[in-house]
Design a protein around this nucleic acid. Sequence first.
DNA 1: TCAAAAAATGACGATCCGTCAATACCCGAA
DNA 2: TTCGGGTATTGACGGATCGTCATTTTTTGA
Lengths: 284, 284
Amino acid sequence: MQPRPTDPQHQSTPEFGSDPSLPPHKGQPSASHGGPKGKQLEREQREAEWLRLALGILLEEGYLGLTMDRLAKATGYAKGTLYLHFKNKEDLICALLRDFQVKRMELFDRVADLDLPHRARLAAIGLAAELFPLAYPENARIEPVLKTQSLRDKASPERLRALEEIDLFCFSRVLQTVQAAVDAGELRMQAHETPEQLVMALWSMHVGLNVLRNTTAHLTDTCSTTDSPPHEVLFPIAQRLLDGYGWQPLSTEFDYAGLRQQLLREPLSAEAERAWQASGIRLL
Amino acid sequence: MQPRPTDPQHQSTPEFGSDPSLPPHKGQPSASHGGPKGKQLEREQREAEWLRLALGILLEEGYLGLTMDRLAKATGYAKGTLYLHFKNKEDLICALLRDFQVKRMELFDRVADLDLPHRARLAAIGLAAELFPLAYPENARIEPVLKTQSLRDKASPERLRALEEIDLFCFSRVLQTVQAAVDAGELRMQAHETPEQLVMALWSMHVGLNVLRNTTAHLTDTCSTTDSPPHEVLFPIAQRLLDGYGWQPLSTEFDYAGLRQQLLREPLSAEAERAWQASGIRLL
DNA sequence: TCAAAAAATGACGATCCGTCAATACCCGAA
DNA sequence: TTCGGGTATTGACGGATCGTCATTTTTTGA
């Protein structure tokens, strides 16, 4: 073990669980028996590994701590190889962001088709949206960081389009639910009101709360000092809002709080458990 | 006009209205008659000038385009002098952010003490909050950018505290209004509800909408394609929400839309005018 | 077995941040 | 007017990072 200028064994930090014994590029292309599939698989695995490490660094030391040199070395590959996968740093950030959004979308999917009144379905999606940053606080913490910062200026168009696609998909999901309620006569909107605006307002609440939680903790803490548990913020308020619209069934006619408990037990139990472990928040 | 290595006349861009003939430091300390006041004044003027230029560059070329070298040269001063005013780049960003927040606070101040029912006062503040990004779209556009990005890691504690102070001040303003309504019996909250949560939700809506407008324009555009004017988003929805709380007087008993028009004519006419000029949005 | 194609490398140029020793300027006293 | 100490300003420099690309290593396939 002769002293080296940049001995990977002597990294300043253990580098977030990367396997230090990982051979740079001497390992077999893949465990599977040859063919282009193996190549492709290895490529994806490596990319996933980079994203995993990038997330770790980002959480540990923030945006400034994440450098391409460091990320490359962390897996034993050279920087040039890293740049074969990601056009630039923003592109990598974009890929990271996409992973979160896919996760959230999957969560939406799990509750969007339940056999419930339209309003209850919307409430279920809202709960999922509220649960997400609690179950994956790391993701939520860096999401506002990633969403800005000249990301759109430099990331590759393909990655950006992928992001927009997911956004639009989620938006449509919610919009469909509202529209269905309007069509069913359960929700009446005035002339100047549109389902899009309602969806946008609900969406804004979630986005904004997440931003505030992660940029102005001194304020959100004010909320938590009360008796009420700090996580139960958006769900009941959204119900008040929908009551204000007169969306049937009203919260006086339907037990949305009970639905919430039920959803947390059944299709969202895994996330509720994660929230308990990750954020120390007992939801059930 | 002998050729110089860094001739300010030959900047790549005209640099956003800075006076190219501005003498580096040969001008009189100040027009006022001597004394330490003049020195202080000159210092503040210079700082204001830097912030003005920084905003211009930020708007024109984004966060990446704003470099300390460039900003320094734009006023004819050296970088070292710039660093005498701002601890680092983040610190400068912080100062810029503060200017916006002060502006918004002043707007709040202008409507927070009107002789109106509590709920109408809250609506007035909400209108001010909604009007702000329309009247100062440049500010709103970069505010999400500035709020993140390791700003808190590197900016000086004093500047950060100044930011928090303003946030807290605005928050308190709103909270007081809600609390007053509760005390007056015009707003009843259930056991698990708190005024803080309601304020935070309203605040989140505004923050979130601004973020969405500036990061995912493809979605917010969806909202604008409807017949309804795109700017009338939050005000009516907030009224729905407060109706949901049963906050007296309900929107069926009080003409909040009329109040809105009136506010836009009287204490907020300047901002309404700005919104018309800056965003092409006719509010009246 | 070997040569062409593909993959991986890391040194390099360019950019930017923030510092600090050197310089220019100011102002009161002689 | 001259001088000297103190203050304001400067810009070259060190350090760090991004992204490139000519070179080297590995793989492929004939």
